[in-house]
Protein backbone atom coordinates (compact mmCIF):
# COMPACT_ATOMS: atom_id res chain seq x y z
CA UNK A 1 0.00 0.00 0.00
CA UNK A 2 1.14 3.51 -0.75
CA UNK A 3 1.35 5.99 2.07
CA UNK A 4 -1.03 8.92 2.35
CA UNK A 5 1.39 11.09 0.37
CA UNK A 6 1.58 8.47 -2.37
CA UNK A 7 -2.18 8.18 -2.65
CA UNK A 8 -2.59 11.95 -2.72
CA UNK A 9 0.09 12.15 -5.42
CA UNK A 10 -1.71 9.53 -7.49
CA UNK A 11 -4.99 11.40 -7.06
CA UNK A 12 -3.33 14.65 -8.13
CA UNK A 13 -1.85 13.15 -11.29
CA UNK A 14 -5.10 11.38 -12.13
CA UNK A 15 -7.15 14.54 -11.65
CA UNK A 16 -4.67 16.57 -13.68
CA UNK A 17 -4.94 14.09 -16.54
CA UNK A 18 -8.73 14.11 -16.40
CA UNK A 19 -8.85 17.88 -15.90
CA UNK A 20 -9.86 18.71 -19.47
CA UNK A 21 -12.76 16.31 -19.12
CA UNK A 22 -13.93 18.18 -16.05
CA UNK A 23 -13.77 21.38 -18.04
CA UNK A 24 -16.04 19.79 -20.64
CA UNK A 25 -18.77 19.23 -18.09
CA UNK A 26 -18.17 22.56 -16.36
CA UNK A 27 -18.63 24.53 -19.56
CA UNK A 28 -21.42 22.48 -21.03
CA UNK A 29 -24.66 24.42 -20.71
CA UNK A 30 -27.91 22.46 -20.77
CA UNK A 31 -29.46 24.98 -23.15
CA UNK A 32 -26.59 24.64 -25.62
CA UNK A 33 -26.92 20.89 -25.32
CA UNK A 34 -30.60 21.12 -26.16
CA UNK A 35 -30.10 23.58 -29.02
CA UNK A 36 -27.18 21.75 -30.60
CA UNK A 37 -28.60 18.27 -30.40
CA UNK A 38 -32.20 19.07 -31.30
CA UNK A 39 -31.38 20.81 -34.58
CA UNK A 40 -32.58 18.95 -37.68
CA UNK A 41 -29.95 16.45 -38.84
CA UNK A 42 -27.87 17.23 -35.74
CA UNK A 43 -27.46 13.52 -35.10
CA UNK A 44 -26.64 12.49 -38.66
CA UNK A 45 -22.87 13.02 -38.11
CA UNK A 46 -23.15 10.63 -35.16
CA UNK A 47 -24.81 8.04 -37.38
CA UNK A 48 -22.16 8.62 -40.04
CA UNK A 49 -19.36 8.19 -37.52
CA UNK A 50 -20.81 5.03 -36.02
CA UNK A 51 -21.46 3.49 -39.42
CA UNK A 52 -18.05 4.39 -40.82
CA UNK A 53 -16.27 3.19 -37.68
CA UNK A 54 -18.19 -0.07 -37.72
CA UNK A 55 -17.24 -0.70 -41.35
CA UNK A 56 -13.62 0.31 -40.66
CA UNK A 57 -13.47 -2.06 -37.71
CA UNK A 58 -15.03 -4.86 -39.73
CA UNK A 59 -12.35 -4.45 -42.38
CA UNK A 60 -9.60 -4.24 -39.76
CA UNK A 61 -10.76 -7.39 -38.04
CA UNK A 62 -11.00 -9.24 -41.35
CA UNK A 63 -7.57 -8.28 -42.69
CA UNK A 64 -5.70 -7.15 -39.57
CA UNK A 65 -6.31 -10.24 -37.47
CA UNK A 66 -4.64 -12.68 -39.88
CA UNK A 67 -1.78 -10.23 -40.39
CA UNK A 68 -1.28 -9.88 -36.65
CA UNK A 69 -1.35 -13.66 -36.25
CA UNK A 70 1.19 -14.18 -39.03
CA UNK A 71 3.42 -11.49 -37.54
CA UNK A 72 3.55 -13.20 -34.17
CA UNK A 73 3.91 -16.78 -35.39
CA UNK A 74 7.02 -16.15 -37.49
CA UNK A 75 5.10 -17.11 -40.58
CA UNK A 76 6.56 -14.13 -42.44
CA UNK A 77 10.11 -13.47 -43.61
CA UNK A 78 11.76 -10.58 -41.77
CA UNK A 79 9.36 -10.31 -38.81
CA UNK A 80 10.98 -7.09 -37.56
CA UNK A 81 10.22 -5.36 -40.85
CA UNK A 82 6.49 -5.99 -40.51
CA UNK A 83 6.39 -4.75 -36.98
CA UNK A 84 8.45 -1.66 -37.82
CA UNK A 85 6.03 -0.83 -40.61
CA UNK A 86 3.16 -0.78 -38.14
CA UNK A 87 5.20 1.35 -35.73
CA UNK A 88 5.85 3.85 -38.51
CA UNK A 89 2.10 4.06 -39.11
CA UNK A 90 1.61 4.53 -35.37
CA UNK A 91 4.12 7.38 -35.24
CA UNK A 92 2.80 9.14 -38.32
CA UNK A 93 0.72 12.21 -37.44
CA UNK A 94 -2.80 11.53 -38.77
CA UNK A 95 -2.68 14.74 -40.78
CA UNK A 96 0.37 13.43 -42.63
CA UNK A 97 -1.37 10.10 -43.21
CA UNK A 98 -4.20 12.07 -44.81
CA UNK A 99 -1.86 14.04 -47.05
CA UNK A 100 -0.10 10.85 -48.15
CA UNK A 101 -3.46 9.19 -48.80
CA UNK A 102 -4.19 11.96 -51.29
CA UNK A 103 -1.16 10.83 -53.27
CA UNK A 104 -1.99 7.17 -52.76
CA UNK A 105 -5.72 6.86 -53.40
CA UNK A 106 -6.64 10.26 -54.89
CA UNK A 107 -9.10 10.10 -57.81
CA UNK A 108 -6.41 10.60 -60.46
CA UNK A 109 -3.97 7.98 -59.08
CA UNK A 110 -3.87 4.43 -60.50
CA UNK A 111 -5.67 3.19 -57.38
CA UNK A 112 -8.17 6.04 -57.74
CA UNK A 113 -8.88 4.95 -61.33
CA UNK A 114 -9.37 1.38 -60.15
CA UNK A 115 -11.77 2.57 -57.45
CA UNK A 116 -13.65 4.67 -59.99
CA UNK A 117 -14.26 1.50 -61.99
CA UNK A 118 -15.97 0.15 -58.86
CA UNK A 119 -17.88 3.44 -58.58
CA UNK A 120 -15.91 4.36 -55.47
CA UNK A 121 -13.96 7.49 -54.69
CA UNK A 122 -11.60 8.03 -51.79
CA UNK A 123 -12.18 11.75 -51.78
CA UNK A 124 -14.96 13.34 -49.76
CA UNK A 125 -17.18 10.27 -49.63
CA UNK A 126 -18.35 7.83 -46.97
CA UNK A 127 -15.83 5.43 -48.46
CA UNK A 128 -13.08 8.03 -47.99
CA UNK A 129 -14.13 8.46 -44.36
CA UNK A 130 -13.85 4.71 -43.84
CA UNK A 131 -10.44 4.65 -45.54
CA UNK A 132 -9.16 7.51 -43.36
CA UNK A 133 -10.45 5.82 -40.21
CA UNK A 134 -8.90 2.49 -41.20
CA UNK A 135 -5.51 4.11 -41.68
CA UNK A 136 -5.71 5.98 -38.38
CA UNK A 137 -6.88 2.95 -36.40
CA UNK A 138 -5.00 0.12 -38.16
CA UNK A 139 -1.68 0.28 -36.27
CA UNK A 140 -3.51 0.29 -32.95
CA UNK A 141 -5.51 -2.79 -33.87
CA UNK A 142 -2.75 -4.74 -35.59
CA UNK A 143 -0.16 -4.12 -32.87
CA UNK A 144 -2.73 -4.78 -30.16
CA UNK A 145 -3.88 -7.99 -31.81
CA UNK A 146 -0.27 -9.06 -32.33
CA UNK A 147 0.38 -8.56 -28.62
CA UNK A 148 -2.74 -10.61 -27.87
CA UNK A 149 -1.55 -13.47 -30.08
CA UNK A 150 1.95 -13.27 -28.65
CA UNK A 151 0.45 -13.99 -25.24
CA UNK A 152 -0.85 -17.33 -26.55
CA UNK A 153 1.95 -19.88 -26.44
CA UNK A 154 2.55 -21.48 -29.84
CA UNK A 155 3.05 -24.75 -27.97
CA UNK A 156 -0.67 -24.79 -27.15
CA UNK A 157 -1.63 -24.50 -30.80
CA UNK A 158 0.77 -27.33 -31.62
CA UNK A 159 -0.85 -29.50 -28.99
CA UNK A 160 -4.26 -28.80 -30.47
CA UNK A 161 -3.02 -29.82 -33.91
CA UNK A 162 -1.40 -32.98 -32.57
CA UNK A 163 -4.73 -33.79 -30.92
CA UNK A 164 -6.35 -33.71 -34.35
CA UNK A 165 -7.47 -30.10 -34.81
CA UNK A 166 -7.34 -28.40 -38.18
CA UNK A 167 -5.73 -24.94 -38.15
CA UNK A 168 -9.09 -23.25 -38.16
CA UNK A 169 -10.51 -25.48 -35.43
CA UNK A 170 -7.53 -24.87 -33.16
CA UNK A 171 -7.78 -21.15 -33.86
CA UNK A 172 -11.41 -21.20 -32.79
CA UNK A 173 -10.97 -23.47 -29.76
CA UNK A 174 -7.58 -22.36 -28.40
CA UNK A 175 -6.01 -19.29 -30.01
CA UNK A 176 -9.10 -17.12 -30.14
CA UNK A 177 -10.39 -17.78 -26.60
CA UNK A 178 -6.93 -17.20 -25.13
CA UNK A 179 -6.27 -14.09 -27.21
CA UNK A 180 -9.82 -12.80 -26.82
CA UNK A 181 -9.25 -10.37 -23.93
CA UNK A 182 -6.26 -8.83 -25.72
CA UNK A 183 -8.13 -8.74 -29.02
CA UNK A 184 -11.03 -7.00 -27.31
CA UNK A 185 -8.66 -4.36 -25.95
CA UNK A 186 -7.16 -3.87 -29.39
CA UNK A 187 -10.61 -3.61 -30.90
CA UNK A 188 -11.72 -1.10 -28.30
CA UNK A 189 -8.62 0.99 -28.90
CA UNK A 190 -9.20 0.86 -32.64
CA UNK A 191 -12.84 1.81 -32.15
CA UNK A 192 -11.88 4.87 -30.15
CA UNK A 193 -9.29 5.84 -32.76
CA UNK A 194 -11.76 5.39 -35.61
CA UNK A 195 -14.54 7.34 -33.88
CA UNK A 196 -12.15 10.15 -33.01
CA UNK A 197 -10.21 10.14 -36.29
CA UNK A 198 -9.72 13.71 -37.40
CA UNK A 199 -6.36 14.47 -39.03
CA UNK A 200 -6.62 12.16 -42.02
CA UNK A 201 -10.38 12.72 -42.19
CA UNK A 202 -9.92 16.48 -42.44
CA UNK A 203 -7.78 15.99 -45.52
CA UNK A 204 -9.59 13.32 -47.53
CA UNK A 205 -13.09 13.12 -46.07
CA UNK A 206 -14.28 16.60 -45.19
CA UNK A 207 -17.71 15.40 -46.22
CA UNK A 208 -19.80 13.61 -45.12
CA UNK A 209 -19.36 15.06 -41.65
CA UNK A 210 -18.61 12.56 -38.92
CA UNK A 211 -18.69 13.64 -35.29
CA UNK A 212 -15.14 15.03 -35.04
CA UNK A 213 -15.68 17.01 -38.25
CA UNK A 214 -19.01 18.23 -36.90
CA UNK A 215 -17.25 19.48 -33.77
CA UNK A 216 -14.65 21.27 -35.86
CA UNK A 217 -17.15 22.85 -38.23
CA UNK A 218 -19.46 23.93 -35.43
CA UNK A 219 -16.48 25.43 -33.65
CA UNK A 220 -15.65 27.40 -36.77
CA UNK A 221 -19.19 28.43 -37.38
CA UNK A 222 -20.65 29.24 -34.00
CA UNK A 223 -17.91 28.73 -31.45
CA UNK A 224 -17.00 26.59 -28.51
CA UNK A 225 -20.31 26.54 -26.66
CA UNK A 226 -22.15 24.97 -29.57
CA UNK A 227 -19.36 22.49 -30.28
CA UNK A 228 -19.06 21.06 -26.75
CA UNK A 229 -22.33 19.09 -26.86
CA UNK A 230 -20.99 17.15 -29.82
CA UNK A 231 -17.77 16.48 -27.92
CA UNK A 232 -19.90 15.00 -25.14
CA UNK A 233 -21.81 12.94 -27.67
CA UNK A 234 -18.54 11.59 -29.09
CA UNK A 235 -17.44 10.62 -25.62
CA UNK A 236 -20.71 8.91 -24.77
CA UNK A 237 -20.77 6.90 -27.98
CA UNK A 238 -17.09 6.00 -28.24
CA UNK A 239 -16.42 5.16 -24.61
CA UNK A 240 -18.65 2.19 -23.64
CA UNK A 241 -16.86 -0.32 -25.87
CA UNK A 242 -13.37 0.40 -24.48
CA UNK A 243 -14.70 0.34 -20.93
CA UNK A 244 -16.48 -2.99 -21.47
CA UNK A 245 -13.38 -4.46 -23.06
CA UNK A 246 -11.29 -3.29 -20.14
CA UNK A 247 -13.63 -4.77 -17.57
CA UNK A 248 -13.82 -8.05 -19.44
CA UNK A 249 -10.03 -8.25 -19.85
CA UNK A 250 -9.54 -7.68 -16.15
CA UNK A 251 -12.07 -10.40 -15.28
CA UNK A 252 -10.56 -12.85 -17.76
CA UNK A 253 -7.16 -12.27 -16.16
CA UNK A 254 -8.56 -13.09 -12.75
CA UNK A 255 -10.34 -16.19 -14.01
CA UNK A 256 -7.48 -17.95 -15.82
CA UNK A 257 -4.32 -16.26 -14.63
CA UNK A 258 -1.67 -18.04 -12.59
CA UNK A 259 -2.76 -16.04 -9.56
CA UNK A 260 -6.10 -17.80 -9.62
CA UNK A 261 -4.94 -20.51 -7.24
CA UNK A 262 -4.41 -17.83 -4.59
CA UNK A 263 -8.07 -17.01 -4.38
CA UNK A 264 -10.97 -16.96 -6.76
CA UNK A 265 -13.42 -14.13 -6.08
CA UNK A 266 -16.17 -16.39 -7.45
CA UNK A 267 -15.80 -18.67 -4.43
Amino acid sequence: MLGVVGVLGAVAVWLALLGPLGALFAHLSPSALRTSLSAPHALSPLVTSVEASAVALGVLVAVGTPLAWAMTRNRLPGPRVWESGMLVMLLMPPLVIGLLLVFFVGPLTPIGHGLARLHLSASNTFFALVVAEIYEAAPYYVLGAAAAFTSVEPELEEHAWLLGDTWWRSFRRVTLPLAAPGLASALAMAWARAMGAFGAVLVIAYHPYGLPMQIWVTLQQTGLAAALPFALLLLVVALPLPVLAYVWTARARIASGPDASVGDPAL
Partner: peptide, 11 residues
Amino acid sequence: ALDSHLEAGQL
Protein backbone atom coordinates in the same frame (compact mmCIF):
# COMPACT_ATOMS: atom_id res chain seq x y z
CA ALA B 1 -6.07 20.37 -47.45
CA LEU B 2 -7.47 21.86 -50.66
CA ASP B 3 -4.07 23.10 -51.82
CA SER B 4 -2.55 19.71 -51.06
CA HIS B 5 -5.11 17.94 -53.22
CA LEU B 6 -4.37 20.28 -56.12
CA GLU B 7 -0.60 20.06 -55.64
CA ALA B 8 -0.86 16.26 -55.47
CA GLY B 9 -2.53 16.39 -58.86
CA GLN B 10 -5.80 14.93 -57.59
CA LEU B 11 -8.05 17.78 -58.72
